[in-house]
Write a protein that binds this DNA or RNA. Structure first.
Length: 273
DNA sequence: CTCCGATCCTGATGGC
DNA sequence: TGCCATCAGGATCGGA
């Protein structure tokens, strides 16, 4: 599920169910996902604390507790939702936070690449403090972007996946953003023209906001916290559409691999060398 | 610093 | 049906 629009959707869905509930107990199935904590240590740290706020930074979900922050990163296949304890486990659940209203905050993650951490008050790990701009709330000028990109020889598409630039963009929206901005995904970041940087600053928030408005994208039967899933996947312009006509110029969409990830683009309208 | 590739995992899918 | 290769919405690590 999880790029910024999907993570934000999850946060909005679970927020109301978690605010002012307290965690009575917690259990964890995969110790590796908790490092450097142990399952017992983490359970002891959060038990008895009340959830005061639920928010997002980049792709991280942050639960503000009385004395610290519970951080959840969904990575590739993680999902986070509240269910009735009596309903029983769903497939691949890896962590459970019992709430004082008889429900459970469950973390489901088939590939177990997701991460759960507890940060005591004042503790800010590299994970969080290296993150870049928040796309929906930080206004970024082309000049600021140019400063950040000046020494980056990496291609612009993998650059968008670098969370130290903008935090929250993932593989789907990177392709979508570059299609909207008509930028060649292979172009080196430092070589973008002034106009391309302007378009990037415009389209990064626009694409993510539009996806958020639709509740995010749901691919391969993954669903959001409430089990309904978003609808934006139907509106993806190029991602997953190899061979289909570009919605702008009808040229066939192409797929190729950059930094071990698929990139989709239109060779005609994004051919700016 | 920046970069690139390998790596961590499991499950779904498609070809034979 | 079974087997195998490939792919997957992410991020970190080590070496160059």
């Amino acid at each position: 599920m999880p790029e910024l629009p999907e993570v934000e959707t999850v946060v909005r869905e679970i927020r109301g169910e978690l605010l002012n509930r307290s965690i009575t107990a917690a259990r964890f199935a995969v110790p590796r996902q908790l490092q450097p904590h142990t399952p017992r240590g983490l359970a002891r740290a959060v038990a008895g604390q009340t959830i005061r706020d639920v928010r997002r930074r980049g792709k991280h979900i942050l639960l503000q507790l009385d004395r610290g922050l519970l951080l959840v990163h969904l990575r590739m296949t993680g999902r986070l939702y509240v269910r009735e304890a009596a309903d029983g486990e769903r497939a691949h659940e890896r962590a459970w936070f019992d709430l004082n209203d008889g429900r459970v905050l469950a973390f489901r993650d088939a590939r177990t690449l997701g991460v759960i951490r507890y940060l005591r008050d004042g503790e800010t790990p590299l994970m969080l403090n290296r993150l870049g701009w928040e796309p929906l709330s930080d206004r970024v000028s082309p000049e600021e972007l140019r400063t950040v990109l000046s020494r980056r020889t990496i291609a612009v598409k993998p650059l968008l996946l670098d969370q130290k630039v903008w935090a929250g963009i993932g593989n789907i929206y990177a392709s979508e953003i570059l299609w909207e901005a008509r930028i060649n995904p292979r172009k080196r970041a430092s070589r973008l023209t002034r106009s391309e940087m302007e378009r990037l600053c415009q389209w990064v928030p626009r694409v993510l906001q539009r996806a958020l408005d639709r509740g995010g994208s749901t691919l391969r039967n993954f669903v959001g916290a409430d089990g309904r899933g978003g609808s934006y996947q139907r509106e993806l312009r190029v991602y997953g559409r190899e061979g289909e006509p570009c919605p702008r110029c009808r040229a066939p969409v192409r797929r190729f691999v950059q930094a071990q990830r698929s990139t989709y683009y239109c060779p005609r309208c994004q051919n700016t060398k």
